[in-house]
């Protein structure tokens, strides 16, 4: 499963950051490392991009790139503010 098809609010763990080159490096540098917890917080009204909550920050990337990040579901339910 990738970030692009994750459901809103699901608590996810990053397994692998695919893609390549500079963009992948930038995602890693922003803290999207394997093992990091992430949630898809919202989807833009026009369907793209999506908003992620990672390490307490809101980051937005496009679905095309989100599809390169594979994740597994941790536990269902709303991601609460203040979680690590």
């Amino acid at each position: 499963m990738t970030l692009a098809d994750a459901r809103l609010g699901e608590l996810l763990t990053i397994r692998q950051v695919g893609g390549q080159g500079g963009f992948r490096r930038r995602l890693l540098e922003l803290g999207l490392l394997p093992g990091t917890q992430v949630t898809v917080k919202s989807v833009a009204p026009l369907g793209d991009p999506i908003e992620l909550l990672v390490r307490g920050a809101s980051l937005s990337i496009r679905k095309q790139e989100a599809a390169t990040v594979s994740v597994t579901v941790d536990l269902k339910g709303q991601f609460r503010s203040g979680s690590p």
């Binding site: 991009p49 937005s60 990337i61």
Partner: peptide, 10 residues
Amino acid sequence: RVPLILELPP
């Protein structure tokens, strides 16, 4: 093409 990375600050 540069992929978008956009921070949404509080």
